[in-house]
């Protein structure tokens, strides 16, 4: 039999990796939130996971920290990557993390921060609004047309500006 290559490392098995640590571990839950606010969304890196509103709870008890994350869409592949990034960041900070998934109450785009909406706009993604995109994120025109109800990731739809004719992503209201 031909020898098969060793399996790839299992995500989540992070405990044995070398820890990068500068300074003392976070001492308050506020410090942990600040740390988490530095972790970018893997698919829209201009916004952080706290901007996205998916960190639902942080509970710090000495060096042990519990973080509850909610998925945006139930099949979003980024959820898994985010959980690994959170675990890695907390380990690097000298904490012992337990990362859990919490689906109740379900994520809604209402939890996007105002800062996140502005960052999306500047990045070229129209932020969610009840009646579809309010304006083209490129030129600001308000005459826009839906191209498709879905886009490159579960959270986006494809639209086009009637004024500048550029296509753009719209972060769907959810």
């Amino acid at each position: 039999m031909v020898a098969r290559p060793a399996p790839a490392p299992v995500p989540g098995a992070l405990a044995d990796r070398p820890v990068r640590r500068d300074g003392p571990p976070p001492a308050t839950e506020g410090d942990v939130w600040a740390l988490l606010s530095q972790i970018p969304d893997p698919e829209i890196p201009v916004i952080s996971i706290t901007d996205l509103g998916i960190v639902r709870e942080v509970a710090l008890d000495g060096r042990a920290v519990r973080v509850a994350i909610t998925p945006t869409y139930s099949g979003c592949p980024a959820t898994f990557v985010i959980a690994i990034a959170v675990e890695a960041a907390l380990l690097d900070a000298g904490l012992t993390p337990t990362v859990t998934s919490r689906i109740d109450p379900p994520w809604t785009t209402d939890w996007l921060t105002e800062a996140a909406r502005e960052k999306l706009r500047r990045y070229g993604i129209a932020p969610p609004a009840t009646r579809g995109p309010e304006a083209c994120p490129h030129c600001g025109a308000t005459t826009v047309t839906q191209v498709s109800r879905h886009g490159s990731t579960p959270c986006k739809a494809q639209w086009r500006c009637d004024a500048c004719a550029e296509p753009f992503d719209y972060f769907k209201c959810h």
Partner: peptide, 13 residues
């Protein structure tokens, strides 16, 4: 894209 996204939702569920 729409069909693949729908499939992804269903697999997540």
């Amino acid at each position: 894209i729409a069909t693949a996204n729908t499939a992804l939702d269903l697999i997540g569920q």
